[in-house]
C-alpha cells in the first residue's frame, strides 16, 4: 500500500516541477507584439502623431 502511494507521488512531483519550469521559460520570452504597441504609444507622444496622418500598420509577424 505504502509503496504504491510513493510510486505515484514521484511522477506527480516531477510533472509539477516540469510545468513550473516551463512556466518560467515561457515568461522569459520577449513579448514582441506588446513591445511594439508600447513603442508606438511612446512614438505617438514624442513625435506628436496623434490625430495626424494615420501611422503605417506594423508589419505582420509571427506570434
Amino acid at each position: 500500500m505504502r509503496l504504491e502511494k510513493n510510486r505515484l507521488a514521484l511522477p506527480g512531483v516531477l510533472l509539477a516541477a516540469a510545468i513550473a519550469a516551463g512556466c518560467v521559460t515561457i515568461n522569459i520570452y520577449f513579448p514582441a507584439a506588446a513591445a511594439e504597441k508600447a513603442a508606438d504609444r511612446i512614438i505617438d507622444e514624442v513625435w506628436q502623431l496623434k490625430g495626424g496622418a494615420p501611422a503605417p500598420a506594423p508589419k505582420p509577424e509571427a506570434k
Binding site: 520577449f30 514582441a32 513591445a35 511594439e36 513603442a39 508606438d40 511612446i42 512614438i43 513625435w47 502623431l49 501611422a55 503605417p56 506594423p58 508589419k59
Partner: peptide
Amino acid sequence: GDIRNTFAQRWIDR
C-alpha cells in the same frame, strides 16, 4: 536590447 531593437524598427517605420 530587445526593446531598443523594437523601437529602432518602429521609429523607422513611422
